[in-house]
C-alpha cells in the first residue's frame, strides 16, 4: 500500500505512536486497576481517560500559546505540558 500521499515524517509518526501508546497504557491500567470516577478541583466527575483527554487538549493549547509568545523550539512548552499533565492526574 502506497502511503506517500499521507506525507509521513518521523516526528509526526512519533507523535501518533505516543498518543497510541498512551491510550493502550490507559486501557491496560484501567483493566488491571479499575478506578471509580472522582470529583476534583474542577468540580466535575472524571475518569483516568477524561484526565488524559484534558491533559492532551490542554497541552496542545500550552504549545500553541508558547509558539505564539516565544516561537519555536517548544522544549520549554513540553516541560510545562508534563507538569500540567501531572497536575491534572493528581488534582482534577
Amino acid at each position: 500500500m502506497n502511503l506517500s500521499w499521507m506525507a509521513w515524517t518521523w516526528p509526526t509518526a512519533g507523535f501518533f505512536i505516543f498518543i497510541a501508546l498512551a491510550l493502550i497504557t490507559m486501557t491496560v491500567w484501567g483493566i488491571k486497576a479499575p478506578q471509580a470516577p472522582r470529583v476534583g478541583i474542577l468540580r466535575i466527575e472524571t475518569t483516568p481517560g477524561d484526565r488524559l483527554f484534558i491533559s492532551l487538549l490542554g497541552s496542545a493549547f500550552i504549545c500553541l500559546a508558547w509558539l505564539g509568545m516565544f516561537g519555536s523550539p517548544v522544549y520549554g512548552a513540553l516541560i510545562v505540558c508534563c507538569i500540567y499533565a501531572l497536575g491534572v492526574f493528581r488534582w482534577v
Partner: peptide, 29 residues
C-alpha cells in the same frame, strides 16, 4: 493524521514535501 503531517511540511506539488517544523503554526498564530 494527514493534516497533521501536512502542517509541518511545505510542498510545491508532485507529492514532494519539505520539513519546516512548526513554522506554519507560528505564521498562522
Amino acid at each position: 493524521m494527514t493534516v497533521v503531517n501536512y502542517s509541518v511540511q511545505d510542498t510545491f506539488g508532485n507529492n514532494v514535501f519539505y520539513w519546516v517544523g512548526l513554522e506554519w503554526f507560528e505564521e498562522i498564530l
